[in-house]
Design a binder for these strands. Structure first.
Lengths: 200, 200
DNA sequence: CCTACCGATCGGTAGG
DNA sequence: CCTACCGATCGGTAGG
């Protein structure tokens, strides 16, 4: 279940699943990068899908862990949201391929598992929504639809996995500051009112 | 090349590619939804990949067309960016599955084609960057890194394909207003300075 | 961890 | 547009 060889396999699979996609990656490719034969992989794993499940679940763990301390913090909402942005981008930067698999390939999990991931993602989003709703309630953010505002923030942060590169010219902390500057600026000073209830 | 039957095939393929992914979708599934046999598809299309290429290219056309008038408009940057957000979300809402294929499956195109799509996407991003740089130069947006700011805005808008639903409780126009409220608020009033050049 | 292999299925074609 | 089929390749297993 957790031998060192099993970890090697997961690392290679994570990279290939991220680069080519789950279905486009064959177990023969995974084996080849480890100088093994495809059949030998199954001494360490149960199935290709179990491998995907493990990678996705571990990525969800990383996101959860990164904001766990913020969920019930008593800090002001601006501080908490800024920290959440930094944490979220930090997880992505620390493992772009895990993030890519988490965001793109989870849907290839079969049914009890896919629903579980959706549920975890909903809970994660609820933490962001809670921070923003708190800021609106206390008046540090402009009043508005916290659910939609959380989605705007998370959408921006999620997509960054497409281009965020820790080895790139801009450090992850600087990218997080840019995100926070715009998103917090918008939440504090933007015109969010009126987007709340008048929709049908 | 463009018979009505060929369009039917593209419509079905677009939906299945979006729902299951390119590799996970078989030509037999596409055929089955059209009450055909798999082999018969090839009287109308050249290959599975050519079908993907057509869908992706058409989606890129839709995004380009939606902001074409904004690229060289003389309007103020706030107006243009707001219009770009509305247009972008409008394209996604009008065809979520095309957007999903465009964002997720283009990488399965083989090489001259994949590079072409990357290039088109870069040019599209450059229009957004141009609008934001213009706003910063004229002082209607806070000074900062226009490239990064454009990425924040586009990242938020792109990810919306994951949940934006024209049949949902919130109208697309209202969603666009929420996006514009936060993103424009952040660009106008946010703290964007200092994120520009001091990175490595 | 390998050899050898299995049934299933894939994209695509030939010939009508 | 169908029948019939092809070579290739897939995830996975048996038996060592």
């Amino acid at each position: 279940m957790s031998g060192t060889r099993q970890i090697d396999i997961a690392i290679v699979a994570e990279r290939l699943f991220a680069a080519r996609g789950y279905y486009a990656t064959t177990m023969r490719e995974v084996a080849r990068e480890l100088d093994m034969k495809a059949g030998s992989l199954y001494a360490h794993i149960d199935s290709k899908e179990a491998l995907l499940a493990e990678i996705v679940e571990r990525a969800a763990d990383a996101f959860d862990a990164a904001i766990a301390a913020l969920a019930h913090s008593k800090e002001p909402a601006e501080i908490r949201l800024r920290a959440a942005i930094r944490a979220h981008l930090g997880v992505i930067a620390a493992s772009r391929s895990a993030a890519a698999v988490y965001f793109n390939e989870w849907r290839h999990l079969s049914e009890p598992h896919a629903a579980r991931i959706t549920q975890r993602r909903d809970r994660y989003e609820a933490v962001w929504r809670g921070i923003i709703a708190d800021g609106m309630a206390r008046g540090s953010f402009a009043p508005g639809d916290a659910r939609m505002a959380a989605r705007v923030c998370l959408s921006a942060c999620n997509w960054s996995y497409q281009w965020l590169d820790p080895a790139g010219p801009m450090k992850v902390g600087a990218v997080a500051e840019a995100f926070a500057g715009i998103l917090l600026g918008g939440l504090v000073h933007g015109e969010l009112a009126g987007i709340s209830t008048e929709q049908q």
